[in-house]
Computed example of a mutant assay.
Amino acid sequence: MKSSTSEALWGYFFILPQAIGLIGFAMVPLILAFALSLMQWDGFGARTFVGLDNFIGQFKDPDFNIAVVNTLYYTVLTVPTGIILSMLVAVGLNKVKGKVLYRLFYFMPNITMSVAVAVVFMWLLNGDFGLINLYLRDWFGIQGPQWLTDTRFVIPAISLLSVWVGLGGSMVLFLAGLQGISATYYEAAEIDGANKWQQLRHITIPLLSPTTFFVTIISIISSFQVFDQSFVMTGGGPAKASYTMVFHIYDSAFVDFTFGKSTAAAVILFVIILVLTLIQMRISKRWVHYEG
């Protein structure tokens, strides 16, 4: 009994730093954010309790509604594309020679500063002299659009950047998932005469579903938090076509100095992400298959 108590105390001792960090840098700010969302505050004067007025005001705010629509549009474009491409790249690199070097190249954008990447893509996506439009014109005879100044193409352009940046991180996760699939499944499939496509469809994709589930959750969370790209590349424009929810939170807090309204928008974003995550966890039982 004394030994087990001592082990438990040592366990609490070792998790204490992490617990302090979690409480101090996550739980306390979260509680304060919920409290501030019920108040009116400009960052300098006294706080005034206004109840749910900030939340009601957000739903009536045209800018907030635009931000929600743009964020959803961005998520729909980015998440499925990123998951499919990263899975295909992972499958392609799983048993190729020099795969360590290839993994390095694919993962490098994931650790590159987002502002630096956005500046480079501003040049690539320039409608007049950008390389992407240059290649479209010279190779395919297509006149490329004004990617960053046309309201129809600005979200797809930002999505293109995000897919490129996030491809390496998701690819590494899928590679880890592929390593956990037993080779006996593929050997049995080859004996039965299954080709590579049939193996991919009936073995790889179903057994990668736990990894796909995890990547989907973190990708959706990340997509709802998009800010750097639109802030650097377009400033939320043109005509608020790239005005996202986090951009709205930033704009309300540090441009309009309405911290109560900004925090209310952040709380709404938190609830949206939480609800979507819970829905995914609920329906995951229908399509996530665990080996064994």
Score class of each variant (00 low, 15 high):
87 M>S: 04
134 L>C: 05
16 L>E: 12
74 Y>G: 04
265 A>M: 10
97 K>A: 15
194 A>F: 10
110 N>L: 10
34 F>H: 08
94 N>L: 02
84 I>K: 15
20 I>H: 08
76 V>Q: 05
206 P>F: 03
211 T>A: 04
79 V>A: 02
258 T>D: 03
181 I>D: 00
265 A>C: 08
234 T>D: 07
18 Q>E: 02
45 G>V: 02
244 T>N: 03
138 D>S: 13
157 A>W: 06
35 A>G: 06
173 L>G: 07
225 Q>S: 07
287 W>C: 00
2 K>N: 03
174 F>R: 03
219 S>Q: 13
130 G>M: 06
26 A>I: 06
279 I>N: 00
2 K>S: 06
141 G>K: 01
252 S>V: 12
30 L>Y: 15
79 V>F: 12
83 I>F: 06
212 T>D: 07
100 V>N: 11
113 M>T: 12
102 Y>G: 00
175 L>K: 02
247 F>K: 00
147 W>F: 01
117 V>I: 14
292 G>P: 03
231 F>G: 02
285 K>Q: 13
121 F>A: 03
215 V>L: 11
92 G>A: 04
83 I>V: 14
142 I>T: 06
44 F>D: 01
193 G>E: 00
21 G>V: 06
232 V>Q: 09
123 W>T: 14
222 S>T: 15
83 I>R: 13
197 W>V: 15
226 V>T: 09
257 F>C: 02
174 F>L: 00
202 H>I: 01
215 V>F: 06
83 I>W: 10
278 L>G: 01
96 V>S: 14
71 T>P: 03
71 T>L: 01
57 G>M: 12
125 L>H: 04
127 G>K: 02
124 L>H: 09
180 G>N: 10
205 I>R: 11
65 N>K: 15
158 I>D: 05
97 K>L: 13
260 G>K: 09
74 Y>L: 03
164 W>P: 03
199 Q>H: 11
200 L>P: 08
136 L>P: 05
1 M>V: 05
222 S>D: 14
26 A>T: 12
192 D>I: 03
271 V>L: 10
168 G>I: 13
50 V>S: 00
68 V>Q: 02
68 V>R: 00
219 S>W: 14
196 K>N: 12
262 S>T: 13
210 P>I: 03
68 V>N: 10
142 I>F: 05
17 P>L: 13
212 T>V: 03
47 R>S: 05
150 D>H: 08
68 V>G: 05
73 Y>A: 05
248 H>F: 14
251 D>T: 06
125 L>T: 08
231 F>I: 04
90 A>H: 11
133 N>T: 09
112 T>Y: 07
279 I>C: 01
45 G>A: 07
271 V>S: 04
270 F>R: 12
271 V>H: 01
151 T>E: 00
216 T>I: 09
135 Y>F: 11
55 F>Q: 04
256 D>C: 00
40 Q>D: 15
167 L>M: 13
290 Y>G: 00
